[in-house]
């Protein structure tokens, strides 16, 4: 509840329909040090990042631990998830060489998925992927991997084919080359990071504002600080928040999928050059 309280601390329900902090940053920055381990500050967000990693490992470990020939529902779901990333993303997009990138794509998918699920997890209610550190780091990692793979596979022609693309009329080559260069090396990592980040930020803002306004309205109505009509608005916000909650379930799955898929697509364009 701390984040809700911080977000809506100065809320005056007689003036505002929806409670919002003066600075949107207040919904995302929990940089209050909870504990300090060897000089490294463990904030709530840092803790959640480590928790996401631990959960990702636990999810896979308990799914595959028994290696049963006749798997139960849980083992089957984990196997299904892993074979989905392998068959549909790694091998499906990149082709047979995609198996090399499967561990990275799998780790990416499960880590982002859990980071996203934190958005709608009770008592957590905070997606770590809405902190730029995570999407940025992961998209830069994808960038490093696809650039490295491109050079390793095609040598220097990887770069020259982008700057001076073959199969394009000569007078267009400089223009197309410039666009390609920017889109491949500058726009890709940025768009990849921002897509995930912005989606989760938006979802978190909507959910926290609506839920905290609903909470404050209803409690204020019950304590007689505001009228019943205003208080009933709280229930409306609550209902709206539940609808958005359902919507966010889709966003959470979709964004984890899209990030992983685009990483595979970028690696594919580096490894299998045909443009």
């Amino acid at each position: 509840m701390d984040e809700l309280i911080l977000a809506t601390a100065e809320c005056d329900l007689n003036e505002n329909a929806v409670c919002a902090p003066e600075n949107v940053k207040d919904l995302f920055e929990f940089r209050v040090e909870v504990i300090n381990i060897l000089g490294f500050p463990i904030t709530r967000t840092v803790f959640l990042i480590f928790l996401a990693g631990a959960l990702a490992i636990a999810l896979l470990y308990f799914g595959l631990r028994k290696r049963a020939t006749q798997p139960g529902k849980y083992q089957l779901s984990i196997e299904g998830l892993m074979t989905f990333v392998k068959d549909e993303i790694a091998v499906g997009i990149i082709g047979p060489t995609g198996i090399k990138y499967y561990p990275y794509l799998m780790a990416l998918f499960i880590f982002i998925l859990i980071g996203n699920v934190f958005e709608i997890t009770p008592f957590v209610n905070f997606p770590i992927t809405s902190r730029m550190a995570i999407p940025l780091f992961l998209s830069l990692l994808t960038w490093v991997i696809f650039v490295f793979a491109g050079f390793k596979r095609n040598g220097l022609s990887y770069l020259t084919d982008i700057i001076w693309p073959p199969g394009v009329p000569v007078f267009l080559k400089p223009l197309v080359g410039l666009i390609e260069f920017f889109s491949t090396f500058l726009v890709r990592p940025f768009s990849l990071a921002v897509r995930l980040f912005a989606n989760l930020v938006a979802g978190h803002v909507m959910l926290t504002l609506l839920l905290s306004t609903a909470f404050i309205s209803i409690t204020a109505m019950l304590s007689g600080e505001i009228g019943i009509v205003k208080g009933l608005f709280g229930f409306a916000w609550w209902a709206l928040a539940l609808a958005i909650f359902m919507f966010e379930v889709i966003v959470i799955l979709l964004q984890a999928y899209i990030f992983t898929l685009l990483s595979a697509v970028y690696i594919d364009t580096s490894v299998n050059v045909e443009h």
Binding site: R31, T45, V46, G53, A56, L64, P103, I110, A133, L138
Partner: peptide, 26 residues
């Protein structure tokens, strides 16, 4: 702008997950 401690935490956590997936899960 990424917060330094979150970036470091992210790098560590993701690396562990990656190595686990690579060396054990797959």
């Amino acid at each position: 702008l990424p917060a330094a401690e979150e970036l470091i935490a992210g790098i560590i956590a993701f690396s562990i997950v990656f190595f686990f997936v690579w060396k054990w899960a797959i």
